[in-house]
C-alpha cells in the first residue's frame, strides 16, 4: 500500500480543491499513522483467506422491491437551496473540465 505522507495528503487535498494549514496536515498524518497501525493489526489475523467479507451483520435477504410509482419531487427552490451559486435554475460550478 502507498505510504501516507504529507505529500500524498497535499495531493489528495488539491484534487478535492481545498487546502489546510501545516499544523492540520501534521495532525492528519499522525492520525493516519494510528489508523494504519490498527489495520496492520487486523491484517495479522491468520487463516482468513477463505472467509467471505461480511457486509451485513446478519445473513438475511429480502424480496422487497419498490413499485414504480412517482412521488412529488422537491420544489426547484428547495432542491437548489444548498447551492451557493445558481444560474438559470442550474447549479453553477467553477469549470470542471479543460
Amino acid at each position: 500500500m502507498k505510504a501516507i505522507t504529507k505529500e500524498v495528503l497535499k495531493d489528495a487535498a488539491s484534487r478535492l480543491m481545498f487546502d489546510m494549514s501545516d499544523e492540520q496536515y501534521d495532525t492528519l498524518e499522525k492520525e493516519f499513522e494510528i489508523i494504519i497501525k490498527q489495520m496492520k493489526l487486523i491484517g495479522e489475523i491468520p487463516d482468513v483467506d477463505n472467509v467471505e467479507p461480511m457486509t451485513f451483520p446478519f445473513d438475511v435477504t429480502t424480496d422487497f422491491l419498490r413499485e414504480d410509482e412517482v412521488t412529488e419531487p422537491l420544489t426547484k427552490s428547495d432542491a437548489l437551496k444548498n447551492a451557493k451559486d445558481v444560474l438559470d435554475g442550474q447549479i453553477k460550478l467553477p469549470k470542471v473540465v479543460g
Binding site: 410509482e69 412517482v70 419531487p73 420544489t75 426547484k76 442550474q90
Partner: peptide, 22 residues
C-alpha cells in the same frame, strides 16, 4: 420507467432543470 432507480422522483426527458429531484 416512471420513477428513478433508487428514488421515487419522476423520470422524464426535457423537463425544466432541477424539477425532477428528491
Amino acid at each position: 420507467t416512471k420513477s428513478k432507480m433508487f428514488s421515487s422522483a419522476p423520470v422524464e426527458f426535457g423537463a425544466e432543470p432541477n424539477t425532477l429531484v428528491n
